[in-house]
């Protein structure tokens, strides 16, 4: 579904990713784990067009999307719930969700049942339903995270990118977020999940890639990675 080949990317002259390749098959959940500064978010940003890759190839559904503007990539069917949530703080919860369906409401993507999807998102996140008229800026961190995820779902995406959905959340909410990811997986949504919480991410994912200093150091089925000592070392350094 989503293929990343030999991706080099960074900011200005600084290269952060030194050629990584990741594959996300239809209906599967793939996770990208690694410590701070390893290049996880840079990968996500290159895929969704927030930054222009230096070189490499990214295809979505067989269509080459490398270097396209992010609005075009979104219309091609890729939704990205970005790091830091980035909800539209002066708009209401409902408006934020409707903007997630912007291509469906305007042009470029099949309209389908937007109102029905809105209801389904509210079913998935009852907390958002309670706050539907509230401005997104007044939500708590956890609610904003749910809003960001719900907003991305409103696209009816072919692939969903979740960047650090657990970042800055209290443990109870982290649990809730992972419950929802599991729920989405059960619905057959293809996902690329970036996480710092490696154990939890590997629990939900089918396949995992470990990113270290801009390179893939280890990859394999999630079950297998869980017990790989290299994964722990990538975070906390080898024991002394």
């Amino acid at each position: 579904m989503l293929q990343i080949q030999n991706l080099h990317a960074g900011y200005g002259k600084v290269e952060v990713l030194h050629g990584i390749s990741v594959e996300v098959p239809q209906g599967k959940v793939v996770t990208l784990i690694g410590s701070n500064g390893a290049g996880k978010t840079t990968t996500m940003r290159s895929v969704s067009g927030m930054i222009r890759p230096m070189s490499g190839n990214i295809t979505l559904n067989g269509k080459n999307i490398t270097g396209l503007a992010s609005n075009k990539i979104t219309r091609a069917g890729l939704a990205h719930s970005p790091e830091g949530r980035r909800v539209f703080s002066t708009l209401s919860v409902t408006d934020n969700l409707l903007l997630g369906a912007f291509p469906r409401l305007t042009f470029g993507r099949e309209r389908g049942d937007v109102q029905g999807d809105l209801k389904r998102v509210f079913d998935l996140f009852p907390r958002l339903k309670e706050r539907e008229a509230q401005l997104a800026g007044t939500l708590s961190g956890g609610e904003q995270q749910m809003l960001a995820m719900g907003r991305a779902l409103m696209l009816n995406p072919d692939v969903l990118l979740l960047d650090e959905p657990s970042m800055g959340l209290a443990p109870l909410l982290v649990k809730e977020v992972f419950r929802i990811i599991r729920e989405l997986k059960a619905r057959g949504i293809t996902m690329l999940l970036v996480e710092q919480f490696a154990a939890a991410a590997l629990d939900v994912a089918d396949y995992g890639y470990v990113l270290e200093n801009g390179r893939i150091s280890v990859h394999g089925p999630a079950e297998q990675l869980k017990n790989d000592p290299a994964v722990k070392a990538a975070y906390l350094g080898a024991a002394h």
Binding site: S48, G49, M50, A69, S70, N71, T74, R75, A79, H80, P82, R86, V87, F88, S89, T90, L91, D95, L99, G100, F102, P103, T106, G108, R109, R151, L155
Partner: peptide, 16 residues
């Protein structure tokens, strides 16, 4: 409004 809030995030919504 979304663009004024956060231009990058608005791009992710498919907004030009």
């Amino acid at each position: 409004v979304a663009t004024s809030n956060d231009r990058d995030a608005a791009g992710l919504m498919g907004i030009n």
